[in-house]
């Protein structure tokens, strides 16, 4: 691999970029972006405030930016089930990390192959992937595959395998490979006698870091946010992911709203209060949202690596 640095390596030192805007247009653009990201963040602030609001105040007044009375009840409620929550965080972390790794490997392999003109069947396999985007298997058949063919009921793999591949990501990956890997680099490596696998590992992958970071991010978000696989396949509380706990609370509330025949009290249904629910939202959202900068780093690194390559 060529190691010589070219003149563009001066990018991104001290946070200054010559490609960025300067002066007034930068300020205006900055403000526009700031406004939109505040609009995006605001509901989350609202969630945090509710999680600290006393229930009585919520029922009487609804949501207020500055509530009549504050309370830690929501978090106390969660603290009571800390054992479960900690275990669930563990499960979520495991499936997210392991699943994302698996996902990135399978997707980039497939995506790379169908991006290569030398691969005779690339259109066939592109279509094979794409077709699944439109004709998903139904819920019940998938359930049967996972529980009866693969026997994964109450198995952590049931939380991982069904979400490993998404055709959408493969197609994105393919597009990235076509665009960002210069043909010349690969050709010269071939002439040097490198095997396809080696070319893929040592040249293509490093060149495609932004794309891989993107797919890894998507996959991470998918695993972190998923609760549906747990609903279908998991009954053992030791294997509940975090979002499954949250969705249980939400679906129980939905259910009570729908069900007028038997009042919740008669049924003995206990619903955590809004503050507890929102505390749960905070706990299950904040870690993943704050992990985003980690992926961002690779977008930027991709840039520098890319600029070294030419």
């Amino acid at each position: 691999m060529p190691k010589k640095a070219n003149n563009s390596s001066l990018t991104l030192t001290n946070g200054y970029t010559p490609y960025g805007l300067k002066g007034i247009s930068n300020v205006i653009l900055s403000i526009m972006m700031a406004v939109f990201s505040f609009i995006c963040l605001f509901p989350f602030i609202y969630v945090i405030i509710i999680s600290f609001t006393a229930e009585e105040s919520l029922i009487r007044n609804g949501f207020q930016i500055i509530p009549d009375s504050w309370s830690l009840e929501g978090y106390k409620y969660l603290w009571k089930s800390q054992g479960q929550i900690l275990r669930s965080i563990g499960v979520t972390l495991f499936i997210t990390v392991f699943g994302t790794l698996l996902s990135v490997v399978m997707i980039s392999l497939f995506g790379y192959a169908i991006s290569r003109k030398e691969f005779k069947y690339r259109r066939l396999f592109t279509f094979l992937a794409f077709f699944t985007m439109l004709f998903g298997g139904g819920l019940v058949p998938t359930y049967i595959v996972v529980t009866q063919f693969l026997g994964l009921r109450d198995n952590i793999l049931a939380l991982i395998l069904p979400l490993v591949v998404q055709a959408f990501w493969i197609i994105i990956m393919r597009t990235f490979f076509i665009r960002s890997v210069p043909e010349a680099v690969i050709e010269s490596a071939r002439i040097d006698g490198a095997s396809e696998i080696r070319i893929f590992m040592q040249i293509v992958l490093p060149l495609s870091l932004p794309a891989i970071a993107t797919i890894a991010l998507f996959s991470t978000l998918t695993y972190w946010n998923d609760w549906f696989q747990a609903l279908l396949y998991i009954t053992d509380p030791d294997l509940y992911p975090l979002q499954a706990l949250l969705s249980k609370i939400e679906s129980n509330i939905e259910f009570l709203k729908e069900m007028k025949l038997i009042s919740g009290l008669q049924a003995g249904i206990t619903i955590p209060e809004d503050s507890a629910k929102m505390a749960m939202v905070v706990i299950s959202t904040l870690p993943i949202a704050l992990s985003y900068p980690f992926f961002q780093k690779y977008f930027v690194e991709g840039l520098t690596v890319g600029s070294v390559k030419e």
């Binding site: 399978m106 699944t132 139904g138 819920l139 591949v165 893929f200």
Partner: peptide
């Protein structure tokens, strides 16, 4: 290269399509 994901597609997408 395409084998792992293809197997996945067959198991998790094409088999369940019978459901249609």
């Amino acid at each position: 290269f395409v084998l792992p994901a293809t197997i996945w597609f067959i198991i998790f997408s094409y088999l369940p399509m019978i459901g249609h």
